[in-house]
Design a protein around this nucleic acid. Structure first.
Lengths: 185, 185
DNA sequence: TAACGACGGAACGGTTGCGTTGCGACGTAC
DNA sequence: GTACGTCGCAACGCAACCGTTCCGTCGTTA
């Protein structure tokens, strides 16, 4: 039986290594070193660093992402932004997520995994939020959830993950209001 | 005298190599191979792959980015989106830009260079556009250019560079209208 | 025509990571 | 108490790339 504490140590090391050097530079030797573990222990569990990362991403995907139901479009949008901002301000996640998203452009397997773990989740949330808003009469029939996602998450991702700028107090409120304004019409 | 055609061949190879494998995996051997050039020719010009890329990015930065002046906020926003979409749909640029942006999170020198070549340029354009709109009375006094940039470029970058989805006909028009709606208020 | 310098190419020793193998130590199951 | 499997560790041969050096070729300049 494989020891679970060793498995956990490796998983943790992968996260840290992914955050500090990125997928491209990450090596199994480095992971084992950081985990305080022999290379053997890693290869006994995964075939390559790709499988390691795919496994990790799949674990994240399986958690699922809850769709907000605050009763108003603004409230729902604000909740989505809160969750996204929390993730993108996390020191590890804010390095890992953009890194894997870029890597996904070159590797179809990573692309599929990330898609399932992040994008599909978010698109699902967006679909729920938009549908609720349509039923409430806040948005017109036939509103496009993908466009909604662009308008809601795009500006935040741009600021936090691309420009890597600060997030002034009240900015999420403003962004939510702006997104709602953009969506209606 | 260094031969200019060789220099150009190397520069071109760097772009292609950057697009196909990314900065992290890029090697000087690979660049020389792709350029059909000896390693010597590369080292005679640049100290490392970092200097190579910094030089390239600086060249882009020096070109400058023109600020639109269409006479309306919608027109200006639409023009900015057109330019951004053109770059982000270019097969090479759409790989290189996100790659370097992610690399910038780990390397201060790349960060500075990218900032000067892309972000500062865009922020300058945003500042001009916002000021013009304020003078026209389309936007309230004290509107934040950075927030404007988030709302204008964010959704497009999200769709083209992150999700890597298609760009439906008329989407840029819609995005421009949405951004204007978001900005006013 | 002679001198110079950049050229491509090949080789250098050194480093890093690959994926594999063999080792003795430890813990658990039977 | 014996057998088994995982453990960390060290070493293996192999490959890629590092940055440097030397070579013979070629084009330009004087």
């Amino acid at each position: 039986m494989l020891r679970e504490d060793v498995t956990d140590a490796i998983r943790g090391a992968v996260f840290e290594e992914l955050a500090s050097v990125g997928f491209a530079r990450m090596s199994i030797e480095g992971i084992a070193r950081r985990a305080g573990v022999g290379k053997t222990a890693v290869y006994r569990r995964w075939k390559s660093k790709l499988h390691l990362v795919l496994d990790l991403v799949a674990a994240v995907a399986s958690q699922g992402m809850p769709a907000p139901a605050t009763g108003s479009l603004y409230g729902d949008v604000r909740a989505v932004l809160e969750l996204a901002a929390y993730a993108l301000r996390h020191p590890v996640a804010s390095q890992v997520i953009p890194d894997l998203l870029v890597e996904a452009a070159r590797n179809p397997e990573i692309s599929d995994a990330i898609k399932a773990a992040l994008l599909d989740q978010q698109q699902g949330v967006a679909a729920v939020v938009v549908r609720a808003a349509v039923e409430r009469g806040e948005l017109p029939e036939g509103s496009d959830p993908d466009r909604a996602l662009d308008l809601i998450v795009g500006p935040l991702y741009w600021r936090l993950a691309v420009v890597r700028g600060a997030l002034p107090k009240g900015y999420l409120d403003d962004l939510a209001a702006s997104a709602v304004r953009a969506l209606k019409g």
